[in-house]
Each structure stands twice: as C-alpha cells, then as structure tokens.
Amino acid sequence: MKLSIPLLLSLALHAVLVAGWQLDALKIAKNPETIEIRIAAQVREDVQELPAPPPPKPAKPSASAPPTTTPPREANPVSAPEVLVVPSAKTPASLEAPPPPSAEEWQVASTYKLKNSKRYRNNWGQLVRSMMGTAVEGPGQGMVRFRIEIAPDGTLANIKELWSTSENASKLAWQAIKSLPPLPPTPTGQPLIFERTISFQPYETGWPPSYTLDCLPDPPAFKNPFAWDGKSPQEQARHQAPKRVPADAEASQEKCVTDSTAVTIEQEEGEMKRQTEIYRWGR
C-alpha cells in the first residue's frame, strides 16, 4: 500500500501532461482562419461637383501700342559632319636613265684589252641601260642579268638571260638589246664573252668600275689540292713556286699606278659614295 500510492500519483501526473501536449499539437495543426476586411466608400449626397472654369479670353491689343512681333527663334546650328582628309598619294621615286657612252669613250674602250676588255663591257651595259628609260619605284623596278657573246666585228653573236627580278625590267632590256646600234670591234680581235647585270631601279643605275689597278696581273685562282672526283688516280699535292715575271712585264708594272691615292680627289670621292650607297641599300 505504501508503494502503490506514490506510483498511482506519478501515473496520473504523466497522463495529465500527455493530454495537455496533445491538445496544444491539435491547435497548431489547425489552419488559421482568414479574416476578410471590406471597406465601402460612402458618397455624400450634399456635395456637388463644381463645373470647370472657362478658358481665359485673349487680351485685345491697344490701338496706341504698335503690334510687337516676336522674332523667330534661330535654329540651333547643326555641326557639319567631319570630313576625313585623305592624304595625297606619295609620289614614287624615279631616276632617269644615264646618258649613253660618247664616241670618245667608245674609242678608248675599243683599245682597252685589260681585264677582259673591261671598258668595252662597261660601255655595253651603260648603253643598254640608257635605252631602257626612267626607272620608277614600284613593281616594275628590278634587275636582270645576261650572258653575252660579242663577235670580233662588234655584232651580237649570242645572248642569254640568266635571271631577272622583274618582268618589266626584262622586257625593257630585251627591247633595248634588239635595237642596239652598230658597235666597234672588240679590243682583242677575238669573241668577247662576259656576264652583265642591268639595274633598273630608282636609286642607282650601276656604277662605273675603277680602272686604277687593271695593269696588275690577276691573282692565281684557288685550287684545292685535296679535291678528288673519285675516278681519276690520286696524286700527291705539290706546292708550285710562283712563275717568274718577264722583264718587259716588270717594266710595264712600274708604270702601273698601284696607289689609289694617286688619282684625283673627285674619283676617290665617287668611289667612297659608291661604297656608301651599296652598304646603305644592303646590297
């Protein structure tokens, strides 16, 4: 009995707590009721709408005062659209053809035998270039190289174009070659075979060569003593002593100008300018 009474009181207390918790859960689960509020506007019968006031009448001008006229408003000046100024086209560079060799130059060239008739070859190239006309900067400029064979009597025996950098330059060079005037005989009385590059460009026409050291003999050409074609019998390379110069050749060499400063200052100045132009154009 002593233990049953506290147990019953504890069970009753727990039952009350569980019942209260279930009631609170049911209240929360119910959807809340929506409340709708309507506001009705009441119109008063004693208030009447007032009519709109009439528009004001324009005032009549007085007879004494002269009528004033308002000047028309000036329209805002519209700025003219900017016109892009196109720069004028650059004038292409040009260079006139050099003059043809004179009769005196041909007379000297026809007797100049040194360095494979050097003066004759230079005069021939200058004559062809003078007949090609003015060189203008652009796609028409260029160079063309020929291999020429001239007969002993001065007539053109054979010519072949090796290469060219411009079709226009090649065309003009061929036209000039086909219309060449009669040339003097070759200096040696034998066929003259050489190669020549014709420059058809607006900054140079080909510089005249220097004839200062032409009387000196050509240096011996280099020949590799160890070269072998694989077929011919091999021979031991031997050093050859230089050939003795004849007495008459020694006498002629004494007359040859070996010092380049012995010529005129103008020639030296022209040679320096030629070298400067070559290096400046990267040739």
Rank of each mutant, 00 (worst) to 15 (best):
residue 1 M to D: 12
residue 6 P to H: 03
residue 10 S to I: 15
residue 14 H to Q: 13
residue 17 L to N: 04
residue 25 A to G: 02
residue 26 L to G: 02
residue 33 E to M: 05
residue 39 I to F: 06
residue 43 V to F: 00
residue 45 E to W: 07
residue 47 V to E: 07
residue 50 L to W: 04
residue 55 P to S: 00
residue 57 K to Y: 02
residue 61 P to K: 11
residue 62 S to I: 04
residue 63 A to G: 08
residue 64 S to C: 03
residue 65 A to V: 15
residue 66 P to G: 05
residue 69 T to M: 01
residue 71 P to V: 10
residue 71 P to R: 12
residue 72 P to W: 00
residue 78 V to I: 11
residue 81 P to H: 03
residue 93 A to M: 10
residue 94 S to L: 13
residue 95 L to Y: 08
residue 96 E to D: 15
residue 102 S to L: 11
residue 104 E to V: 15
residue 106 W to P: 08
residue 109 A to H: 00
residue 109 A to P: 00
residue 109 A to M: 03
residue 113 K to L: 13
residue 115 K to W: 10
residue 116 N to M: 09
residue 119 R to D: 02
residue 122 N to Y: 11
residue 123 N to E: 13
residue 129 R to F: 04
residue 129 R to Q: 05
residue 133 G to T: 12
residue 134 T to M: 14
residue 139 P to V: 14
residue 143 M to Y: 03
residue 150 I to R: 10
residue 163 W to G: 02
residue 173 A to D: 07
residue 176 A to Q: 13
residue 177 I to T: 09
residue 177 I to H: 09
residue 178 K to R: 12
residue 184 P to Q: 13
residue 185 P to N: 11
residue 189 G to Y: 12
residue 196 R to F: 05
residue 199 S to N: 02
residue 204 E to Q: 09
residue 205 T to Q: 05
residue 205 T to G: 06
residue 206 G to N: 04
residue 206 G to L: 09
residue 209 P to M: 10
residue 214 D to K: 03
residue 215 C to I: 03
residue 216 L to C: 02
residue 221 A to S: 14
residue 224 N to S: 05
residue 227 A to T: 02
residue 228 W to G: 02
residue 234 Q to T: 08
residue 236 Q to Y: 09
residue 237 A to W: 00
residue 243 K to H: 01
residue 248 D to F: 05
residue 249 A to M: 02
residue 251 A to L: 15
residue 258 T to K: 14
residue 259 D to G: 07
residue 260 S to F: 10
residue 260 S to P: 08
residue 264 T to S: 15
residue 264 T to V: 04
residue 265 I to P: 00
residue 268 E to A: 06
residue 277 E to M: 08
residue 278 I to G: 06
residue 279 Y to N: 05
residue 280 R to K: 14
residue 281 W to Q: 09
residue 281 W to K: 09
